[in-house]
Design a binder for these strands. Structure first.
Lengths: 267, 267
DNA sequence: CCGCCGTGTCTCGTATAGCGAGACGAATTT
DNA sequence: AAATTCGTCTCGCTATACGAGACACGGCGG
């Protein structure tokens, strides 16, 4: 149960850091919930303080009691805020019907991803008639940039400087956890620049599947996210592939048009 | 932009309350993001304090800058925590494939709901070939208990005392916001007790749709959640209806079996 | 039945640490 | 250029969150 541990030495209100630490500990304990000892071990707070904060968090709906007595789970308030967080600039709401249309028409699983620091987070999933698992199983899933097609599309649409430090920062963990070589990622990024979409990356841990991803650029080349899909390799004939690319490109273009309308001043 | 406003007078660490207030303000401002004035208006904090807290929240990943300058959106860390929060006791992960199977086989939209205080929250959605909107559009959506079939199923599986206070607490808001009479809700709860499932409630604001919901009981009658679905009324023939009920009941039973295995002590 | 954990709450004195007022630099706007 | 707004910083003050320890509750086993 290693918790990311917010970098110290920053002098932000300590209660804030403590609270977030408690939430992360709870998250790290997963479905079983976190007990006092988990908190005592993971933080440097005294018992009364921990209880005080836990109580506050419960009252705010950020924690709830686990079915197992004396343990805590993350509260549904977080789910609600999380849903809102995943809908920045209305991106998810606008993308959902388009992903659904793609999924129903083409079978397979379609994803919306966004860029977050060194990671790609999944904002939405729609499954078609032949759904397949991907690296993330659900909304809120997160992978280091470099893993999966969507990552490639996102990286390709970032500015060079940022892309460079991300790849450097992720090099070790990509190799260690996913057996992915950063140079291979770079080649796929070039492919994406040339063709406008990213291919499924071979050599990954999911050999029977393949996929495709497309970046979603806002005004001024700003990277807003990426569409992505996973399919059974056996279902991706040459003709099907062309259809898929056209259909995704069309939905991406449509979404971009929707967004351009909204990003202007407005009320 | 009215924010729930955490009940005061409780002496939990004030920074905690402030932080949560800021998050809620940000959420209330939606896709456009929240500006300083929003925070200044909604809280009673001084400007330097707000900036301090905002900075801390950004560093922790709970806030991020909006594309519109000088505004803040909820950060993706919340999305990740929210995903975890929605998976208490592995409920979502276990339910997802079952919901997907139902959706693909029967068309329509299938939901997993959980009980949270006076509300029902949506934990998962899977859409089939003929998806329809419901009261909640996405994971993390929340409605007062009493609205929709899933609410009925949840209420029916709570103990009488809790059910009573919830209905009383929601009476006014159900009538005002949804034109739903609590007595009608009570009748549907009786129906659910008698038949094991809840019908779509008529008179709601979505007349062409209908649906069905089933409670999900854990060991000791504890209410864990509810399966629910929405369908176009025109597609729900008598025969289809029987199939639907059987299929849902079967998936619910399967899920219950899965859960019973997990709720034992374990490691 | 009684004593023994472990959990959750409370009191209280202390010093920390977060707060407000205001000034300052930077970035935009007119 | 002047003016406005945004974000940060400094600096005292005191509110306030913290830790130590004691207390209450409840379950478990002897």
């Amino acid at each position: 149960m290693t918790v990311p541990a917010s970098r110290d030495a920053s002098h932000t209100p300590s209660t804030l850091r403590h609270v977030m630490a408690l939430l992360r500990v709870t998250a790290a304990c997963g479905a079983r919930g976190a007990g006092i000892d988990d908190y005592l071990d993971a933080t440097e707070l005294s018992r009364p303080t921990i209880y005080r904060l836990l109580k506050g968090l419960r009252e705010e709906g950020f924690l709830r009691p686990s079915p197992l007595r004396h343990r805590y789970l993350l509260g549904y308030e977080l789910l609600v805020l999380g849903a809102e967080a995943g809908n920045g600039a209305q991106l998810r709401d606008l993308a959902r019907p388009r992903l659904l249309a793609l999924a129903q028409r083409l079978g397979g699983s379609f994803y919306l991803f966004a860029h977050d620091g060194r990671h790609a987070v999944c904002l939405e999933i729609q499954n078609g008639a032949y759904p397949v698992g991907g690296f993330v199983a659900s909304i809120g899933g997160r992978v280091p940039l470099g893993v999966g097609q969507a990552s490639i599309a996102l990286l390709a649409s970032l500015e060079a400087r940022e892309r460079a430090w991300i790849l450097e920062a992720n090099r070790e963990c990509l190799m260690r956890d996913y057996a992915i070589d950063v140079d291979a990622v770079r080649r796929e990024i070039d492919y994406c620049h040339a063709h406008g979409h990213a291919r499924g990356v071979e050599g990954s841990s999911l050999p029977e599947f393949t996929g495709l991803a497309m970046p979603l650029l806002g005004p001024g080349e700003r990277c807003l996210g990426a569409f992505s899909c996973s399919l059974l390799k056996s279902r991706l004939s040459e003709a099907h592939r062309a259809t898929l690319i056209t259909a995704m490109a069309s939905e991406v273009a449509g979404l971009k048009a929707d967004l351009h309308g909204l990003l202007q001043p407005g009320s």
